[in-house]
Design a protein around this nucleic acid. Sequence first.
DNA 1: CAAATAGTGTCTTTGAGACATTATGCG
DNA 2: CGCATAATGTCTCAAAGACACTATTTG
Lengths: 297, 297
Amino acid sequence: MQELRDINGLTEEEFLDTYSPGDYERPGIAVDTVIFTVTQTKESNYRKLPEKELKILLIKRGGHPYLGAWALPGGFVTPDETTEQAAIRELNEETGVDNIYLEQLYTFSDPGRDPRMWVMSCSYLALVDSEKITVEAGDDARQAEWFTVRASTVEESINESDNGFEKVTEHKLELICGEIILSGKVRHTILRNDKGARNTYEITENNGIAFDHVRIILYALERLRGKVKYTDIALNLMPEYFTLTDLQRVYEIILGKEQIKAAFRRKYSVLTEPTDKMTSDAGHRPSRLYRRKWLTD
Amino acid sequence: MQELRDINGLTEEEFLDTYSPGDYERPGIAVDTVIFTVTQTKESNYRKLPEKELKILLIKRGGHPYLGAWALPGGFVTPDETTEQAAIRELNEETGVDNIYLEQLYTFSDPGRDPRMWVMSCSYLALVDSEKITVEAGDDARQAEWFTVRASTVEESINESDNGFEKVTEHKLELICGEIILSGKVRHTILRNDKGARNTYEITENNGIAFDHVRIILYALERLRGKVKYTDIALNLMPEYFTLTDLQRVYEIILGKEQIKAAFRRKYSVLTEPTDKMTSDAGHRPSRLYRRKWLTD
DNA sequence: CAAATAGTGTCTTTGAGACATTATGCG
DNA sequence: CGCATAATGTCTCAAAGACACTATTTG
C-alpha cells in the first residue's frame, strides 16, 4: 500500500478505519426484470403450424402501493450482492426459473417513481425457453401470470428547426392474459440539437400496470428488437431442438414483421447446427430439427 | 383513485400517509461520467494534416480513498434529481461544460467497489466537441486533465465444450497526459452455455486509476466503438464546421482502424450537409467544410 | 514542379429481397 | 390426390471493399 497521507495526515488504512458514512439520504435500489418467453398456441387445423406468442411474466401486487395492479418480478438489492445477482435471486424465488439469459437494461431514477420513497430501479432483460418454465403461478399467495405482449407505435410528430429537431412518438402496450387486459402508453420525446441530446419519457396512460413498469417493459422490448437482428440473443428463447421455421416465427413475433424464408435461413442458420432428428406426425413434410450453435465471437 | 383496501383495511392514500421506510441498508448512488473528446496535435510538416487523439477527462483525487489517483468526474445523486440530471450537474460543476451529448452506460454494483461503504455507480458516456472545452483545469483546487486513450486487447483464450464455451479476453488501457501515464488491465470472461450467459470482469492490473474506473472507461470505449458504426453519435465530437477527412479521422481514432476514403464518404456523408465554406492556407488543395445534418430517424 | 490532400469513378464482392420451383408426409 | 409445410435455386438490387485516377493548393 501507499504511504500517502491526506490533508489530515492519515494514511488510507487509517482513513478507512475511522471512516463513517455521512447521513445524507440514500435511495432504495430495486431490481425489476422483464422476462420474455415465446409460447405456442394450439392450432385447430391439424395441418397448420401452431402460432407463437411473445409473453412476459407479471406478478399481482398484494399490498399498497398499486394494490391489485400487476408488476414486474423483482425486489431490493442487499449489500452483499450485485444487482445481477439480486435479479437472479428474485427471479428464482418468484418463478423457480434458474439458469437463464440475463442482461442489464437501464437504471430508472425519476424521483417520485415510487410513491412511498426514493427508489431507483435497475432493470434487467431476461429470456427463457418456454419449455423450461414450470412456474408455479403464485407460490407464496402471490399471483404470477404470463401476459401476451402487443406493442405498437400510435402517433408521431416531427418538429424540425434549423439547428436540430424534436420528435414525439407515442408507444402503446397491451398485455393480455385470458380475461385480464392491461394497457399503457408512453410518450417519447427526442430532442436533438446543438445543445445536446435529451430523451424524455412520459407515461400518458396506464391501466393496471404498477409503478413505471410500462416504460420498463417497452424499453425491454425495444432492446430485444434491436439486438435480435445482430446477435444470437433470440436463441435463448428456443428449446434444445427446434426447426428453422420455429426460429423464424420467433423472429417474426419479436420484430412484428414477416421474414422471407430463403433470406432468413441464409442469415440465421449459421447460429444453428443440424441434428439428425426430424419432426413427425404433422400433416405435411417433416422438418429437420436444429440445435443452437455456440458462436465464440 | 381506487377504493381498494389492503390487508390492514387501508386505502392507498391512508397507506402512504402512514408509510415509513424500513431501516434496511441502502447504497449511496454515484454517477461517474466518461467524457470523450477528440483533439488535434500540432503537425511539424506544414503540408500534413494534424493528427487526432481521443481523450477523456480525469480528476486527481485529493482525499482518501485512492488519494493521488485519477478518477472519473462524478458525484452523488440527490433525491430530487434523476441520475442523468446528476451527471449533467456534476459535469458542469467540475468542467464548466454544458449542453453535451449524454447517455447512460451501465450501473456497476460490485460490493466492495468502494472501500468506504456500499456505493453503486450509475455511469454515463458523454461526448463533447474539443472546441467547446475551455475547462479550467482545477477549479476548486482539484486538478482536472485530459488523458489520451490507448486501448488494446492483450490476450485471448477460448475453451469450447459441448454445450457452450468460455472465452477470456484481457483488455489493456493506457491513459497518457504529458508525463503522467496511467494504465490498467481488465480480464473479461464470457461464459455461454445452456445454463445461461454470464460475463465477469476482473481488474487484474491498475496503476493510478481510482476505484473500478478502468473497467468503466473500457466499457464506455466499447459502447462508443459499437455505436459509431450505426448511429450518428460521432458527430457530437465534431465542431460546427469540419471536413469529411476530419470526420474520417475521428472514426479511425475511435475504431482504431483505417477507413477507405471512398467507402467512408459514401456511408457517412449522409450525416452531413455541405456548406459553401472551404479550408485555406494548407499546403494542399482546399477542402469543403460540412455541417452536421439532423436525421430524424 | 513536388508534396500532400481533395474528391470521384468503377470494378468486385457480399448479402439481402423477392419469387419460383421441387420435395414430402398425412388424411 | 391435395393440403400445408420443407428446402433450395436464382435473379436482382444495394451497399461495402479495394484501388485507381484526376484536381488543387502552397513553397
